[in-house]
């Protein structure tokens, strides 16, 4: 087995398996750990300039990647007109830079703010590193190996689809430049560490919040209120 087959034909399955199996075990044994430890009450200003750009930027870009996987032909038709291609790529680059700015702010905050530092685990640093590297290689590709939204539909889409249908075709990735291979590999690493880290909070997307009435979290120095009798529902903090 070649290195390429190992990294891009076998490892994806290990990564996805780890993600699913560990998430289930964690959910069953430590349901309250399936979350991301919020540090908003410890520091909110830098969090705003880190969390908002990072989360919106990365979510929109991830959505774009997923859309390309689902409707690659739509991307090809859209990109057939150069102006539309430029618009899409420039938008992607702007969102990528935004997300990069955000993850840099978050990393800076985790390293410099002593209150945030106190609740930071080594795994937090690791995933900031992985996601940071993922964003940097993404920007690198967007600028240096154009046009990702165009060739991606012929290179990465069939590759990822081959993984999904259990007929791995790592040969799609084999001839690509190192940066592109790194970007693809880091995605599988991301899935592998997903359930071991705070990334697991992604599967807890609180869709109920869309229909729930507004709720304000109030913290007063004098009264450490955990349960507010005026709230419509008791807060789910039974631990």
């Amino acid at each position: 087995m070649t290195t390429n087959e190992l990294l891009f034909g076998v490892f994806p399955y290990v990564a996805v398996a780890l993600m699913v199996v560990v998430a289930v075990i964690r959910w069953r044994r430590h349901p309250f750990s399936v979350s991301s430890l919020s540090s908003q009450l410890l520091e909110s200003r830098q969090l705003y300039w880190g969390s908002i750009p990072f989360h919106w930027g990365i979510s929109l870009i991830l959505t774009g990647h997923l859309l390309a996987l689902i409707v690659p032909r739509g991307f090809e038709l859209w990109n057939g007109e150069p102006l539309r291609l430029y618009l899409l790529e420039a938008t992607g680059l702007a969102l990528g830079l935004w997300a990069a700015f955000g993850i840099f702010m978050l990393a800076y905050r985790r390293h410099t703010n002593s209150r945030v530092k106190a609740v930071t685990s080594p795994m937090d640093h690791l995933i900031v590193l992985i996601i940071g590297a993922q964003i940097v290689t993404g920007i690198w590709i967007a600028v240096g190996y154009r046009w990702g939204s165009f060739w991606g539909t012929s290179v990465f889409v069939p590759y990822v689809r081959s993984i999904l249908v259990f007929d791995p075709k790592p040969e799609y990735v084999d001839p690509l430049p190192f940066v592109l291979q790194t970007h693809a590999f880091l995605f599988w690493v991301f899935l592998a560490v997903f359930s071991f880290s705070r990334l697991v909070h992604i599967i807890t997307l609180p869709l109920g919040y869309l229909t729930r009435p507004w709720q304000k979290v109030v913290r007063m120095r004098e009264t450490p209120a955990v349960y507010h009798p005026a709230a419509e529902k008791p807060l789910e903090r039974t631990q």
């Binding site: 430590h30 750990s33 991301s36 919020s38 969090l47 969390s51 807890t204 609180p206 631990q239």
Partner: peptide, 10 residues
């Protein structure tokens, strides 16, 4: 932000 505020049990 709407993150939960749980601690991870060791």
């Amino acid at each position: 932000m709407t993150e939960e505020n749980d601690t991870t049990p060791g």
